[in-house]
């Protein structure tokens, strides 16, 4: 207050003689609260924005005007029954691959965290092997399982068997694909789950143990919900990459999205619009997964500051 009523010392700096005179108008006052902040200008940023906008516009223009995209063909095939059925197969492969993969992965994660060196080593070896073998090679192996083992049986290990199945009958194309995807996924899921569990402060399980909370309950109620926070972003990555990875299953001639699109363009020769059909479906469903991820993550962020 005192500053505004005193003739401010900074005022004589202004060249305008009128303003230099002590005046009650706040525009010439140098009270700190009245000073105007002028942000620094970034002219090159605007140049970069303009250049990027031009490139984008060109791309969009090309998408619309280039007849090569054949949008009419795209529209005709986008929701045909063959494609929809293929999308369904892709979703099934993703779902079963993820569910089975993470189920095995959780077991492997706890084997790796076990105090028993044998269990630890086996889990380590599994993860090492399945991360080392390319998915496509694995899938072809599973596809040819019947060549290695003519029949599968349940019974006493190395002893007599009670039940036996013809391998070809039991491990059909679809289940071979799911198995391949799941076993591959399990190796990555194991590491993600293990990382999540390790990220939970040791004090949490100590506190739970000191309260006498039963072991399984400690895991389910205390450790895993907290581990989920670091598991989820990575798990979502894995699910999305598995979802797109199902396209590799096309080598096994299973009618999933990518295989079916190839079949159609093999017949009608419209390669680009049909690839766009597949692309659009992959993008659409990945977006849906990301939305689900957002809400699931929000659920597990309860009680956290960020």
């Amino acid at each position: 207050m005192a500053l505004t009523s005193d003739p401010p010392s900074a005022v004589p700096l202004t060249k305008d003689p009128e303003a230099a005179a002590p005046s009650p108008t706040p525009t010439t006052s140098s009270a700190p609260a009245d000073l105007v902040v002028v942000p620094v200008r970034h002219p090159w940023r605007w140049v970069a924005v303009a250049a990027t906008a031009v490139l984008l516009a060109q791309f969009a223009h090309g998408l619309i005007t280039n007849p090569g995209w054949e949008w009419d063909v795209f529209a005709a095939f986008f929701t045909t029954e063959t494609i929809l059925r293929a999308v369904w197969v892709t979703l099934q492969l993703t779902f079963y691959g993820t569910a089975l993969g993470f189920a095995i992965g959780i077991v492997l994660a706890f084997m790796r965290l076990s105090a028993n060196p044998f269990l630890r080593s086996v889990a380590f070896a599994y993860i090492w092997a399945f991360r080392s073998i390319p998915l496509i090679v694995q899938l072809l192996f599973w596809f040819n399982l019947a060549y290695l083992y003519k029949e599968l049986s349940i019974g006493i290990p190395f002893g007599p068997s009670f039940l036996s199945f013809d391998t070809m009958g039991l491990v059909g194309e679809m289940s071979a694909a799911v198995l391949g995807l799941a076993l591959h996924q399990a190796a990555y899921a194991a590491e993600i789950v293990r990382g999540g569990v390790l990220a939970v402060d040791e004090g949490q399980s100590q506190a739970a143990a000191s309260l006498g909370i039963p072991r399984l309950r400690q895991l389910r109620r205390i450790v895993l919900p907290q581990a989920m926070r670091s598991i989820l972003p990575n798990a979502a990555n894995e699910i999305i990459s598995l979802f797109k990875g199902t396209s590799i299953v096309s080598v096994m001639a299973i009618g999933e999205l990518f295989y079916q699109v190839q079949v159609v363009y093999g017949r009608n020769g419209r390669v680009v619009p049909l690839l766009m059909v597949a692309t659009a479906w992959y993008v659409l469903l990945t977006t849906a997964l990301s939305v689900v991820q957002h809400y699931v993550e929000r659920h597990y962020a309860k009680g956290s500051a960020r």
Partner: peptide, 11 residues
Amino acid sequence: FVFQNFHLFPH
């Protein structure tokens, strides 16, 4: 048992 760093369950 009461811990130095509380170890409340944050979730």
